[in-house]
Design a protein around this nucleic acid. Structure first.
Lengths: 151, 151
DNA sequence: TGAATTTAGTTCGATATCGCACTATATGAT
DNA sequence: ATCATATAGTGCGATATCGAACTAAATTCA
């Protein structure tokens, strides 16, 4: 491996590009969400769908790497909109479990569907195979940062 | 190319991974910045360094894809900290030019240096070549989203 | 040229995010 | 069992972000 002086700028650029893409795509995505909803709402629903619900707020906050106070706020919005419900945590009376509702599941599906045309348009300019090929690396980086967080 | 039903979930996962990596790395990076500074501050300084300064706030806001009101706020923080200065725009009296100061340049360099050890640690777990190989795709995606924004 | 329209930046108000401190419950030590 | 400590979630205050409306200057057009 080359020396850090060579590698660091490249790795830095990697995170820079990731950050810019996130910013641009978030803007685009948020514009597709129903009025009054933010990426933060979608992110929670997406997490519950992908990882399974009946998780505690703290678990979700840790997974998404947001402060628990921020999550409290986001969850209260989702609750008010009927997209999640709470349940007591049988193992711990201090805690509670978050469940995604039918409406929440549909909300997520609709959001993804609303983004569909944008993604198709992207594929007219960027080769699908290249995107697919990049996924393992992205997952590897994410997984490393995820472990880092705990350690 | 496969049908959209096959490609869309993959492209969606791509943006999902990018979003998570951004969230995790931002957290890490922000923790390395001096107290009272946020990613938004760094992002502006980084942009001015990479793209050249003497840009107008609106140009910067468009490039970073943040509302101009948000940028006004971020710039005022940078100004107060002495990391940027303003100059009248000779071409347009409504506008002004943003200049990065010596202190601003150092701030950026220090921030990047402070992150160095984290990046080196990452390279012990993720192959440098793979990161480097992913850059062209990321740049291509960013560039497309960038054009999309205007059109 | 003068009036209508557009544009750069700011102000203002609303909401999101986040750190700190607090309450209630759980866990651990003796 | 009792007490000390740790943990889950929330309330509160501070600041960041953002949309709408505003001001001042530029541009367009008659």
């Amino acid at each position: 491996m080359p020396k850090p002086e060579q590698t660091i700028p490249t790795v830095f650029r990697f995170f820079n590009e990731v950050g810019i893409i996130h910013q641009l795509s978030s803007r685009l995505f948020e514009a597709r969400l129903p009025d009054g909803f933010l990426i933060s709402h979608f992110t929670v629903l997406n997490h519950l769908t992908r990882m399974g619900d009946r998780r505690t707020p703290l678990e979700i906050a840790n997974a998404l790497q947001v402060p628990k106070t921020s999550l409290t706020h986001t969850l209260s919005g989702l609750k008010k909109a009927g997209l999640i419900t709470f349940e007591p945590n049988p193992k711990d009376a201090r805690s509670k479990c978050v469940l995604i509702t039918e409406a929440g599941t549909h909300f997520r599906q609709d959001a993804i569907a609303a983004l569909g045309p944008d993604l198709v348009a992207l594929l007219e300019h960027v080769a699908f195979d290249n995107i697919q090929a990049a996924l393992p690396l992205l997952e590897q980086v994410r997984s490393y940062l995820d472990k880092q967080r705990d350690g």
